[in-house]
Nucleic acid binder design. Structure first.
Length: 424
DNA sequence: TCTGGGGTCCTAGGACCC
DNA sequence: TCTGGGGTCCTAGGACCC
């Protein structure tokens, strides 16, 4: 528990609400025996990565993204749980419902995190500090989860405030108090400063946000590049002008699967890519969208990655078209790599636009010489439409292009994938 | 014992056009 | 025969976020 900084200044009207160790907290809510114990969702001592760690686990050095075996070594009594992904979705949605009661100016940025602009809500609920406290009480009482809230004049500052408030706290940065709040904090709290940029800044002797704010922007741009340098300098100087955006559509859609290391063989590569292309194209068609650029990512042993992209003259969303393009791109990368083993394949589609009723991609394919006047793309669309309709009625696994046996080993549940999907 | 899966944005270099 | 400069699009790679 941490106390709010005093103050009810009307200017701190952007809130950032962020559930604490979300997946792990849900597990502790569902199973009282896990409360107070170090818990890791996902992974295990013999493989996979930790998707989320409880605060008890974090205190022992366990972090999200860490390989399970390393987490187990750091914390021998760590309890690994598989995860209740459907519950995460349900409870995350329930929390967003609570937030939406405060204001419709709500920007959800992930399953467990959102910005709110409460400038229109203060006459109903009081100053931002009171709204933040009310949100925390309601989420605790009605959903049963701890949530931290930051309030400030800008999104960037509100997000930093919520990070400082964690776990289970509320921090309000009053207008006028921004510099005093920011200056002593480490640069890694700035949105966009990760391990690499943190080190680059440290090489210049810059460790705090105050030091960064006092460094000429040109010097920062010199080591971080112009775009990133300008952004980060502006953040350090508290010059964030972003508004709360209530709806945002994804600009790309992708799917990827880690594979147990294997030498690439044509049938196996095609099978995995067909599966991924099916996931991607299905999501596109469900929203009446299509994309012009197809990108394939291949990861090799040693975490070396390679990508290949192709931009088409017209948007595509047919499963078979996407599969064929992906296969060609993947082999371009694999052939360039020489003898190798692959550990991941990914397919993504960008340059996404609304698809008109006409399936323009039909004309990408040459006519079938055996059937004069035929439009082979029409057959593809017809197949996709039939499959989509069957899945709608009978479930996603009722029909597919692939034998189930080809699903890559170690795959995460589909429910987990869906948690991370952005709205198209 | 050796790293998930969903995304966003930026950069450099090359092709191409006017 | 040689040649400027700017703009746009594309590709490949990389950093970062949740």
């Amino acid at each position: 528990m941490s106390a709010a900084l005093p103050g009810a200044a009307p200017g701190a009207t952007i809130l950032h609400a962020d559930l604490d160790a979300f997946y792990a907290s849900v597990e502790q809510l569902l199973d009282p025996a896990l409360r107070g114990r170090p818990v890791a969702v996902g992974g295990g001592p013999r493989g996979g990565v930790v998707l989320a760690a409880s605060y008890e686990a974090k205190a022992r050095g366990v972090q999200g993204g860490m390989p399970g075996w390393r987490a187990a070594r750091l914390c021998p009594d760590l309890v690994f749980v598989r995860g209740h992904f459907g519950e995460y979705q349900r409870l995350g949605d329930a929390v967003m419902d609570v937030l939406a009661d405060v204001t419709p100016a709500l920007e959800r940025i992930s399953i467990d995190e959102a910005f709110l602009d409460v400038s229109g809500a203060t006459h109903l609920f009081g100053p931002p500090a009171a709204i933040g406290a009310r949100i925390r009480e309601r989420v605790r009482a009605e959903v049963g989860l701890p949530i931290s809230v930051g309030a400030a004049r800008t999104k960037h500052l509100a997000k930093i405030a919520s990070q400082v408030a964690k776990p289970d706290g509320l921090v309000v940065v009053d207008p006028g108090g921004e510099r005093a709040f920011l200056d002593p904090l480490p640069v890694e709290l700035i949105w966009g400063v990760g391990p690499v940029n943190e080190q680059r800044l440290a090489d210049l002797g810059i460790r705090t946000i105050g030091e960064l704010a006092r460094t000429p922007s040109s010097a920062v741009e010199h080591i971080l590049g112009r775009g990133v340098g300008q952004k980060i300098s502006a953040m350090a100087r508290d010059e964030d002008a972003r508004r709360v955006v209530t709806s945002r559509r994804a600009r790309s859609v992708g799917a990827q699967s880690a594979l147990s290391r294997r030498a690439p063989d044509p049938d196996g590569v095609r099978a995995v890519l067909a599966h991924l292309a099916d996931r991607v194209s299905r999501r596109l068609r469900a929203k009446g969208r299509a994309g012009r650029t197809v990108t394939v990512a291949v990861r090799f042993t040693g975490m070396r990655r390679s990508t290949r992209a192709l931009t088409l003259p017209v948007p595509v969303c047919a499963t078979l078209t996407l599969t064929e393009i992906a296969v060609r791109l993947a082999w371009s990368a694999i052939d360039d790599a020489g003898p190798c083993e692959i550990t991941l394949l990914g397919v993504s589609v960008s340059n996404v636009v609304d698809q008109t009723a006409v399936q323009l991609e039909l004309d990408l394919e040459p006519p079938d010489p055996w059937r004069p006047g035929s439009r082979p793309g029409a057959a593809r669309s017809a197949v996709d439409e039939s499959v989509d309709a069957i899945r709608t009625r009978f479930g996603a696994d009722s029909v597919g292009y692939l034998p189930a046996v080809l699903r890559p080993g170690g795959a995460v549940p589909d429910e987990f994938r869906e948690l991370a999907e952005h709205d198209l």
